[in-house]
Amino acid sequence: MTLYDLANPTRFLKLVKVVLPWLIVATVAALAVGLYFAFFVAPEDYQQGQTVRIMFVHVPSAQLALMCYAMMALSSVGSLVWKHPLADVSAKAAAPLGAAFTFLALFSGAVWGKPMWGTFWVWDARLTSFLVLLIMYLGIIALWKAIEDPIKAAKVNAIITLVGVINVVIIKFSVEWWNTLHQPPSIIRSGGPAIHSSILIPLGLMALAFVLLFVTLHLMSMRNEIMRRRIRAMRMRAASAAPAASSSTITKAAPAGAR
């Protein structure tokens, strides 16, 4: 099956039907293993103590928030350039998930910040740009709802999503470009991760679990969106057929009335 074949929503739905049960099992298993490692295998940090365990929720959420936006940007390219039938469905379905994980990253960051920094929030570049990401997600969701025609909504949202990619770059490099309270990169950086393997492995497992969770929820949301569009198409067909049916009734009725 090629990517072109998947452009047909019916074929895509068939694939989702096969893949989804396996994805659900994999997600539950990965979450169970990840949580076990996070609470029972990973040691407490010599400086942070038990609060280091917040990292196992905070980092995967933040990575997903960025990954989801990057995926929406790719979908937007697919929507604008190739007019791929599922690209705008994918972008629309991802937005609420991205908003949820961005909120979770902000919340877990705040409750991690209070015991470590002495404050829930500070207007530094990383935190502020992440808050902007949440606002952008909410704006994109609102725009999808505000424009009734899904094709027009997809075009407008694709352009706005691509413009918003600049914020993802700012988030990524904010801790290097500016002096922030948030720590510099400690996983993806030159010289390798700065985290000991005893904490890095549980973090990797939780990150994998979150990615699987996102893929599962995204496929389920895409399936819902395809159904929503089918319902809309059926309602429009019914509405456009209604005047024709009534006019044909009038045409038939007119000669009878003339008699």
């Binding site: 365990r53 959420s61 998930l97 949820a100 994980f101 919340f107 877990s108 409750v111 991690w112 015991p115």
Partner: peptide, 23 residues
């Protein structure tokens, strides 16, 4: 031995459960 910052750890995981459950 969860420590004096237990409420912050619990809050982070509880919110994660609520958000994921709600989704």
């Amino acid at each position: 031995e969860f420590g004096r910052h237990a409420e912050y750890v619990v809050a982070a995981y509880a919110m994660a459960a609520v958000v994921i459950g709600a989704l």
